[in-house]
Design a protein around this nucleic acid. Structure first.
Length: 297
DNA sequence: AAGTGAACCTGAAGGC
DNA sequence: TGCCTTCAGGTTCACT
């Protein structure tokens, strides 16, 4: 589920329930996710006010008034469900009555109270590749999770010149290099495939083949940087993708998947006007790549 | 150093 | 119906 746009969508769903609210109680239903929960996790959170719900790459960073930051990664299958505490005391009105009781893989439940009312926020994660940690705010940027992260693909920072510089010494295929969080932080398998399609670049092409020796932007590096920024921006605007089970925090589905041009479209016709190609699937570094062999060169 | 593949874990989907 | 295999949005570790 979660690449950067899905994490950003989750963040936006958490803001109204969490920002400025106090954590009243935390239920932790197992000793670990991908990693063990930090020592006294629930106790350290209880009583804290959430000052800000932020995001860096695919990490959610919840700044608490105790000067610690609750860091959350959604892994492959993590998601949040937000509901007003009042709602689940009245089963008749609940849109999702199953949530009134514990369902499988509801690993952490946060209870908060703020000016907007009381909320129950459930973290569900079947595969348990996600994790949570508490890190002092002053140490956050130097922490191993964050110190090596590359540039955000949002905003205008990522342009053709920067992309060219990042890829200068990389001979690996564009597909794998775009997934390297140390260079660009937040891209995942879906949006890399989509961006390469939009830029008309083959996923097998060596990353440094789109660079100029001068270090300046090339036509290809500019196209790719633009494509990455646009795909991410559009996906955020659409509320993320919904493969199988991704839901926004209010339970509705994101709809960016209706706009996939290559991902999960093996054998389908290429959507590029005047291209007669069919989408192919190959495996690169153990992951599926979807692309059009006809128009991506 | 850079690059690749396996591992972590569960569930869904497809083949027989 | 059930059993088996394959695959999935991410990251890290071990190896060449």
């Amino acid at each position: 589920m979660p690449e950067l746009p899905e994490v950003e969508t989750a963040r936006r769903g958490l803001v109204p329930a969490m920002e400025g609210a106090r954590i009243i109680r935390v239920e932790v239903n197992r000793p670990n996710l991908r990693f063990e929960f930090p020592t006294d996790f629930a106790r350290r959170l209880t009583g804290c006010v959430v000052n800000a719900v932020s995001r860096r790459a695919k990490y959610l960073t919840l700044y608490l008034d105790c000067d610690e930051v609750l860091v959350i990664h959604l892994g492959m299958s993590g998601s949040f469900h937000v509901e007003r505490a009042e709602d689940h005391q009245k089963p008749d009105t609940g849109r999702d009555q199953n949530r009134n009781r514990l369902v499988a893989h509801d690993h952490v439940i946060f209870h908060l109270a703020g000016v907007n009312g009381k909320y129950r926020i459930t973290y569900n994660d079947p595969r348990r590749f996600g994790f949570m940690d508490l890190i002092p705010a002053s140490l956050l940027n130097d922490h191993k999770f964050f110190s090596k992260l590359g540039v955000e693909p949002t905003g205008n920072t990522l342009d053709g010149q920067l992309l060219g510089q990042l890829f200068e010494n990389r001979k690996a295929p564009l597909k794998s290099v775009l997934l390297d969080q140390k260079l660009i932080a937040g891209l995942g398998n879906i949006y890399v495939c989509e961006a390469l399609w939009q830029a008309g670049l083959s996923p097998m092409r060596a990353a440094n083949s789109i660079c100029a020796k001068s270090g300046k932007a090339t036509k290809r590096s500019t196209l790719l940087a633009q494509a990455v920024r646009e795909i991410i921006a559009r996906a955020i605007e659409a509320g993320g993708s919904s493969l199988n089970d991704h839901r926004q925090t209010d339970g509705t589905l994101g709809y960016f998947q209706h706009r996939f041009n290559v991902y999960d479209r093996e054998d389908a016709d290429c959507n590029k006007p005047e291209c007669k190609g069919k989408i192919a699937r190959i495996v690169q570094s153990g992951r599926s790549t979807y692309y059009c062999p006809t128009c991506q060169t």
